[in-house]
Nucleic acid binder design. Structure first.
Length: 577
DNA sequence: GCCGTTTTCGGCCCGACTGTTTTCAGTCG
């Protein structure tokens, strides 16, 4: 397989870090990082563009020099600029940059003065007490490094799932909101941007500054105070999550909300735009010289730089500013655009509720339909259904619909059928033909190489009864890596065979991810956002799927389950012909 | 290394906090 964009971005970032440690021109370093960010956020492959003879220097942040380097990487597999650096700077230095408090300057100093080449040498140097002798390394710095190295032994995942982060900070947020004089308390940062995981939690507040900071650092969930000033503080919760609080005056609330929502790359782009328009934008407001132009509301920031409001989920510097400029911002999908859920289980396989209970839960959400998609026979641990049991269930679903006829709600007879190792399906075609909806998923042999895994899925798509590929990459956030897949080929197959890709709203899955959703949209492949509910309450997980979809620039028209039932039915039948 | 409607040189986002300093560099977000 060709060199992936993420690999290229990683190489550029490595080079940037090494140049930074060496003390190279900071703007040159930044140029490499900017280019890496551009490439990370692209839906098209650099390798593909090079092969097609396209001009890479048309991409933002990529000029003549980087175009050449990128072409070198994808055609030769070598990156001489990086190899030249690693020849005289040990790559182990990059590990040292992860340590909080150690930046490129101090890492460079450790290397030059103590010959520290990586984490093991750093531990030795700490044990020998030589680090303390360095200029600028006081007791506290050394203590922090020791702390981090120790904590690393009992390492957990670096980033936390957003639903877990939300649960961990509920009490803290409630306490801040309950303080007299508090006007607003808002989570910002990647959490507000709807990211699937968060590195820390950023909270923005307006109200009584000393009282808010005091309440924050003294909260019972706080294990450690990392920093504390008059208007900001940082703590680590007992559960390990870092939380930052920033208190601002109401007239700065909008500017601060924009600033602390980020992303950093988006902020830089907006500020740079401001500089060109002769204004300064910071977390306190919008200024021309000493004159204050605004900052109380977030929308004023965008207005000041001549742009319409950009939704937080889009603020990743992945083209949203150019889209805003030209009036091509997507009208992002919202929760109430959805008409139903296309993936749910009952007690017939591994769900915890009956058909009737699931149907009532969907009805209570004002859905027009709910697809019952229990597992197929191969999933023995989940009590998967064979053709006989499935036919019995189909009959039960038809009976339920008849008993509740006249309403605006339908139960759909479906199956989450296993894709076997060779791409065949786990149930015979004749029974699949009797269903309203078929979701095909992989639950085993995750380790196949990319070529075989991709071919396996495409073979499943070729089956005329398959409508949706369930949780396509099989990843479990923080637990299981996604399968190696050629997403480009997979989407081409989905388009060819009229198959939709699932965005599983399960907080542990969120699969496809944001970039893959955007790829699918750009290639004309529909997305089905489904909760994979195993209990009535799981239908509420949809909101997490919506956030991911919005990060993928999806609009109502890109999503299968925004269709009213007659339109959806027509579409499902067309595929089966 | 990139970029350009004050454009081919001279800029490149901006401020808070910390630790180690006697006024500030480094780091972080």
């Amino acid at each position: 397989m060709s060199v992936h964009n993420l690999e290229i971005a990683a190489l550029l970032n490595q080079l940037a870090d090494l140049l930074d440690i060496e003390g190279d021109n900071v703007f040159r370093v930044r140029a490499y990082r900017n280019a890496a960010r551009t490439i990370e956020g692209m839906s098209r492959g650099i390798a593909e563009m090079v092969a097609g003879g396209e001009d890479l220097s048309a991409l933002p942040g990529i000029g003549a020099a980087l175009s050449k380097k990128l072409a070198e990487i994808v055609t030769t597999g070598h990156f001489h600029a990086l190899e030249r650096e690693t020849a005289h700077l040990p790559p182990g230095l990059l590990d040292l940059l992860q340590i909080p408090g150690l930046g490129p300057k101090r890492v460079g100093q450790l290397y030059r003065e103590l010959k520290v080449c990586g984490l093991p040498e750093l531990e030795t140097a700490l044990a020998e007490g030589t680090v303390t002798k360095l200029h600028g390394f006081g007791d506290k710095t050394v203590e922090r490094i020791r702390d981090w190295l120790q904590r690393r032994q009992q390492a957990g995942p670096a980033r936390l799932r957003r639903d877990i982060a939300a649960a961990l900070t509920t009490d803290l947020l409630r306490a801040l909101r309950a303080l007299p004089g508090t006007q607003s308390v808002t989570p910002a940062g990647s959490f507000r941007r709807g990211a699937e995981t968060v590195g820390d939690m950023d909270i923005l507040a307006t109200g009584d500054e000393p009282a808010l900071v005091k309440c924050f650092v003294n909260h019972e969930d706080v294990a450690e105070i990392l920093a504390q000033g008059d208007t900001r503080a940082a703590v680590r919760l007992r559960a390990g999550l870092q939380v930052d609080l920033r208190v601002v005056p109401p007239e700065s609330y909008g500017a601060a909300l924009h600033y602390f929502t980020g992303s950093k790359a988006h902020n830089i782009a907006i500020r740079t735009r401001g500089v060109k328009a002769g204004i300064k934008i910071n977390e306190y407001g919008i200024f021309r010289g000493d004159a204050r132009l605004g900052g109380a509301a977030e929308g004023e920031i965008f207005a000041a730089v001549g742009l319409p409001f950009i939704e937080p989920e889009l603020r990743e510097d992945r083209g949203e500013i150019a889209a805003a400029e030209t009036g091509r911002l997507p009208k992002l999908l919202a929760l109430n655009d959805l008409r139903g859920d296309l993936h749910a289980h009952t007690t017939e396989s591994d769900g915890t509720a009956s058909l009737d209970a699931m149907a009532r839960a969907a009805l209570a959400k004002n859905y027009a339909y709910l697809a019952i998609t229990d597992h197929s026979r191969r999933m023995t641990v989940a009590h998967g259904l064979d053709a006989i049991r499935l036919r019995r269930q189909i009959a039960a679903i038809r009976a339920w619909n008849e008993a509740h006829a006249g309403g605006a709600f339908q139960l759909l007879a479906g199956s989450e059928v296993d894709i076997l190792e060779d791409g065949a399906l786990d149930l015979p075609d004749d029974v699949l033909a009797e269903l309203d909806l078929v979701v095909a998923s992989i639950h085993d042999h995750f380790g196949l190489d990319g070529e075989r895994q991709t071919a396996r899925m495409i073979k499943a798509m070729e089956n005329p009864h398959v409508h949706i590929i369930g949780h396509p990459t099989g990843r479990l956030i923080g637990e299981r890596e996604p399968q190696v897949l050629d997403m480009e080929r997979l989407l081409a197959g989905a388009r060819l065979h009229g198959v939709a890709m699932e965005l599983s709203a399960q907080p542990s899955r969120l699969d496809l991810n944001d970039l893959q959703c955007r790829m699918a949209k750009e290639r004309g492949v529909a997305i089905a956002i489904s909760t994979d509910a195993h209990a009535p309450g799981d239908l509420a997980l949809m909101s997490g799927g919506i956030l991911q979809a919005r990060r993928g620039w999806l609009e109502a028209a890109d999503v299968l389950n925004t269709r009213p039932w007659p339109e959806l039915r027509a579409r499902l039948r067309r595929k089966a012909q």
